[in-house]
Simulated assay, not measured.
Amino acid sequence: MILTLSHQKGGVGKSTIAWNLAFELSKNIDVKVIDLDIQQSLSVANDIRVNSGLPSMPIEKIESPDRLTKLIQNDTDDQLIIIDSGGFDSSFNRIAIVASDMIITPISDKPFDLMGLKKYEEILQTLSDIQKETIQSHVIFNSINPSMRRFEELIEFVESSKHFKPLKTILRQRVDYANSIGSGKTVCEYKPASKAAQEILALAKEVKELLNIF
């Protein structure tokens, strides 16, 4: 199975979500993480993790489309490949989108993030036309102000497109996300009882249900 964190816009939280999901989902299935981000944030975080004496995450940096294609072709139901795509449009990212069993697109409530979603919608439409099927991404509201409680307008915005479907889980602005990665840990390792950890656990549960991972 393939799960891709995808958005042509950078800085929306793809790497952070991939990092934390990989740790939680690995408790139920063999996980391999593909780092397509030009900043290689996951690989850097993993170096910090190893240098801190923690077990390495199964992360691979991909440098050629052929290697990515080979991994996708060898995809099985016994392993979950989590792809952290870069914040740009490229052949790498398009290959990942088309091959995915599930796509997650993080957005915040900021105007530029919402505008960027329209551009991403164009990419999904182009790929849908090529594949002759509707490619849909699960949108997660990420880095949302903790005081925000009403999401009707955001949900309506997302559901206005046939290419998007909102996830139930909401990830809010939490300093624990940055602090945990800075120490080479996931939020569930860093502060297991924190609100951030509970959000990630909720997201992992939702993803497992959608992908039938038990």
Score class of each variant (00 low, 15 high):
residue 45 A to C: 07
residue 117 L to K: 02
residue 110 K to Y: 09
residue 127 L to K: 01
residue 103 I to S: 07
residue 121 E to S: 14
residue 32 K to R: 15
residue 66 D to G: 04
residue 23 F to M: 01
residue 196 A to I: 10
residue 50 V to R: 08
residue 118 K to H: 11
residue 49 R to M: 10
residue 79 Q to M: 10
residue 197 A to T: 04
residue 19 W to H: 02
residue 187 V to Q: 02
residue 158 V to E: 09
residue 193 A to K: 12
residue 38 I to L: 08
residue 123 I to Y: 02
residue 82 I to W: 06
residue 116 G to Q: 06
residue 23 F to A: 01
residue 74 N to Q: 15
residue 118 K to I: 12
residue 2 I to Q: 13
residue 163 H to C: 08
residue 153 E to P: 00
residue 69 T to Q: 06
residue 58 P to Q: 10
residue 190 Y to Q: 01
residue 119 K to M: 11
residue 37 D to G: 10
residue 34 I to S: 03
residue 30 D to K: 15
residue 145 N to S: 05
residue 185 K to S: 08
residue 185 K to Y: 08
residue 125 Q to K: 11
residue 201 L to K: 15
residue 15 S to M: 00
residue 96 A to L: 11
residue 84 D to S: 05
residue 150 R to H: 14
residue 78 D to I: 01
residue 50 V to N: 04
residue 24 E to K: 04
residue 82 I to H: 06
residue 47 D to R: 15
residue 11 G to H: 10
residue 52 S to R: 13
residue 145 N to E: 05
residue 144 I to C: 08
residue 156 E to R: 13
residue 146 P to M: 12
residue 12 V to P: 07
residue 158 V to Q: 07
residue 195 K to Y: 09
residue 185 K to V: 02
residue 149 R to V: 10
residue 35 D to C: 09
residue 77 D to N: 07
residue 78 D to R: 04
residue 195 K to Q: 09
residue 101 D to T: 00
residue 40 Q to D: 05
residue 6 S to R: 02
residue 139 V to Q: 04
residue 64 S to P: 01
residue 150 R to F: 14
residue 157 F to N: 08
residue 153 E to G: 04
residue 63 E to P: 01
residue 107 I to W: 09
residue 64 S to T: 15
residue 123 I to G: 07
residue 159 E to S: 08
residue 143 S to V: 03
residue 156 E to K: 14
residue 130 I to S: 04
residue 107 I to V: 15
residue 16 T to W: 05
residue 10 G to Q: 14
residue 162 K to Y: 13
residue 175 V to L: 11
residue 105 T to G: 04
residue 29 I to N: 10
residue 177 Y to H: 01
residue 173 Q to G: 00
residue 208 K to Q: 04
residue 125 Q to G: 07
residue 214 F to D: 15
residue 33 V to Y: 03
residue 43 S to N: 14
residue 154 L to S: 14
residue 54 L to K: 12
residue 13 G to D: 02
residue 209 E to H: 11
residue 133 E to G: 03
residue 14 K to Q: 12
residue 203 L to D: 08
residue 146 P to K: 13
residue 87 G to V: 00
residue 88 F to L: 09
residue 163 H to E: 07
residue 139 V to D: 02
residue 190 Y to K: 03
residue 130 I to W: 04
residue 114 L to S: 00
residue 151 F to S: 01
residue 211 L to Y: 11
residue 83 I to M: 11
residue 129 D to C: 14
residue 68 L to I: 02
residue 30 D to R: 13
residue 54 L to E: 12
residue 160 S to M: 10
residue 114 L to Y: 00
residue 206 E to Y: 15
residue 117 L to W: 06
residue 59 I to W: 08
residue 131 Q to S: 10
residue 28 N to Q: 03
residue 113 D to P: 02
residue 16 T to K: 01
residue 189 E to N: 09
residue 104 I to D: 08
residue 161 S to M: 10
residue 47 D to I: 01
residue 41 S to T: 15
residue 202 A to S: 15
residue 150 R to A: 11
residue 131 Q to T: 04
residue 32 K to S: 15
residue 173 Q to N: 08
residue 154 L to M: 01
residue 172 R to T: 13
residue 194 S to K: 12
residue 20 N to Y: 00
residue 189 E to F: 06
residue 57 M to P: 12
residue 3 L to C: 03
residue 14 K to Y: 12
residue 134 T to G: 01
residue 90 S to H: 07
residue 20 N to E: 06
